[in-house]
Design a protein around this nucleic acid. Sequence first.
DNA 1: CACTTTCTGGGTTGTTCTGTCCAGAACCGT
DNA 2: ACGGTTCTGGACAGAACAACCCAGAAAGTG
Lengths: 211, 211
Amino acid sequence: MTVTEEPKPRRLTPKGRATRDRIIEAATELIARNGVAGTGIEDVRAAAGVSGSQLYHYFDSKQALIRAVITRQADSVLHPDQPRVTALDSFDALRAWADAAIERQRENGCRGDCTLGSLAGELSVSDEESRTDLATGFLRWKDLILDGLRAMRDRGGLRADADLDELALSLLTALQGGVLLSQTMLHVRPLEAAMNASLAYVHSFATTAGR
Amino acid sequence: MTVTEEPKPRRLTPKGRATRDRIIEAATELIARNGVAGTGIEDVRAAAGVSGSQLYHYFDSKQALIRAVITRQADSVLHPDQPRVTALDSFDALRAWADAAIERQRENGCRGDCTLGSLAGELSVSDEESRTDLATGFLRWKDLILDGLRAMRDRGGLRADADLDELALSLLTALQGGVLLSQTMLHVRPLEAAMNASLAYVHSFATTAGR
DNA sequence: CACTTTCTGGGTTGTTCTGTCCAGAACCGT
DNA sequence: ACGGTTCTGGACAGAACAACCCAGAAAGTG
């Protein structure tokens, strides 16, 4: 099952890379608002300001484009300009992370947040390859949270017998599920409730010294 | 925004109702496995064993069919043969409810559970009317949980100052988000972690007498 | 400055899928 | 039994959409 990664344009010129990025960006935007099924190649073409065969010059198929969007979203949590996720290693940091997510959701009226969770509902059943990509993204995300929790434990803030993997998963699930329900109910309360619950869960493993 | 409910066949004969139900059932099955976008009218037609114009005799459009599926799923939690949800009024009952969900997920290999959550990811962004139906379903579901929690509080098992609405929402979100991530990662741990977290959250509002 | 590779535009094809039409069979009330 | 309604079958139109092709411009490479 080891597939060659990107068999399309073997080498990209700077200009080419820029165009490719523009396409992915436009696709991400559209998918966030209309979903995968509701976003046609033609729509992406128009939004990206490219024409016709461009899309198939850079991507083998619509599916390949979607997968690129997924990968981009999964990676966006890691290295780039998201400083808040780099230090989820204290109760305050976790709380701030949750609040930021809630605030972001509130800002755009509980709509159009293109998290992996929104894509998962649409793709994980129908497209096996996309499902794998999404699972990888979730796993990476979870590991990031896990790193923070490990730091907390090593520092003595969390009990040694705490199942950190479970805690990290509960935080991730709360975020994804909360965003999903918030988008559907057009209210931030589901997200708030879910984050509060999992934060409390983490908190219940705090050492007396840790807080 | 008050839309007439079902403008299609004004009166249904017993036979007609049976056919209609069969179509909805087949559609539910297919959607659970292939998603909404991955399920065509033709597929439903074949699976239900009906032919051609039947579908449009009972439903105005594909969207109408989808909405019927949503409504059916939303109602299935309420009156029918699901006795376990009728009594979510103790810690043990909540635990059993969570375990049942986890077990069900494990049984079918984390696939094909047609919960509202799976539909939400696909529909809440693209189709406003379906989003409303889903939101109504979630709300009803939440109220059901809420009833149980109220009973617990009135019986003295939960503290009077507990925000029962928040607790109910956290349970619901944990279930939906957990199923979603479990389906994507093909593992029940996300669901387990999420349910454990929200159950612990509820538990943290228990009175000393209550347990 | 040749020469190759990459990039871009637009038109086109072929398929897939929703939704419609029409005619006949079964069913229901009276 | 009769007239009207509901149900069923299959064929068909029409749109939406992914994907392909060709030719030319631009840019990188020696």
